[in-house]
Amino acid sequence: MPRQRAAQATKKGKLMQKLALLAAVAALPLAAPSAFAQPAGDYNWNGSYIGVNLGQGNNADFDLDAELDVASGSTFFPGALAGGTFPTMRRFDGDGWVGGIQAGTNWHSGMFVLGGEVDVQLSDISSSIAIPNAPGGAANNPDGFTDLNFEVDYFATARLRAGVALDRILIYATGGGAYGRVDFDRNYRVGTAEITDSTTSDQFGWTYGAGVEWGMTDFWTLRAEYSRVDLGSDSFDTSYSDGTIGRATIDTQFDVIRAGANFRF
Rank of each mutant, 00 (worst) to 15 (best):
P2V: 15
Q8E: 09
Q8N: 09
A9L: 11
G13P: 01
A20R: 07
L22K: 11
A27K: 13
L28Q: 07
P29T: 12
A31Y: 12
F36I: 09
F36N: 11
P39H: 05
A40R: 03
G41V: 07
D42F: 13
Y43P: 00
N44C: 11
N44K: 15
W45C: 02
G47L: 05
S48V: 11
Y49K: 08
I50R: 09
V52C: 02
N59A: 15
D61C: 03
L64D: 10
A66F: 05
A66N: 11
E67F: 03
V70E: 00
V70L: 01
A71I: 07
P78K: 03
G79R: 11
P87M: 00
M89H: 15
M89I: 14
R91C: 05
G96A: 01
V98R: 03
G100E: 01
A103H: 02
G104K: 00
T105R: 15
W107E: 09
M111I: 15
M111C: 14
V113C: 09
L114W: 13
G115V: 04
V118N: 02
D119Y: 04
D124H: 10
S128C: 03
I129S: 14
P132F: 03
A134C: 11
P135L: 05
G137V: 00
N140L: 13
D143V: 11
G144V: 00
F145T: 03
L148T: 01
F150E: 03
F150H: 09
E151L: 10
Y154F: 10
F155D: 03
A156F: 07
T157R: 06
R159K: 15
R159S: 06
A162Q: 09
G163E: 01
G163W: 00
L166I: 11
A173H: 04
A173Q: 08
G176D: 06
A178L: 08
D183V: 12
D185K: 06
N187P: 04
Y188A: 05
V190N: 08
T192D: 13
A193N: 14
A193K: 12
I195T: 15
I195N: 14
D197G: 10
T199N: 14
S201L: 15
F204C: 06
G205A: 10
G205V: 06
V212C: 04
W214Q: 06
G215F: 00
M216C: 13
W220H: 02
T221M: 02
Y226T: 00
S227N: 08
D230H: 13
L231G: 01
G232R: 04
S233Y: 04
S233Q: 11
S233K: 11
S235R: 07
D237E: 13
T238Q: 09
T238W: 03
G243W: 04
G243R: 04
A248S: 15
G260P: 00
G260V: 01
F263P: 00
F265R: 08
F265H: 06
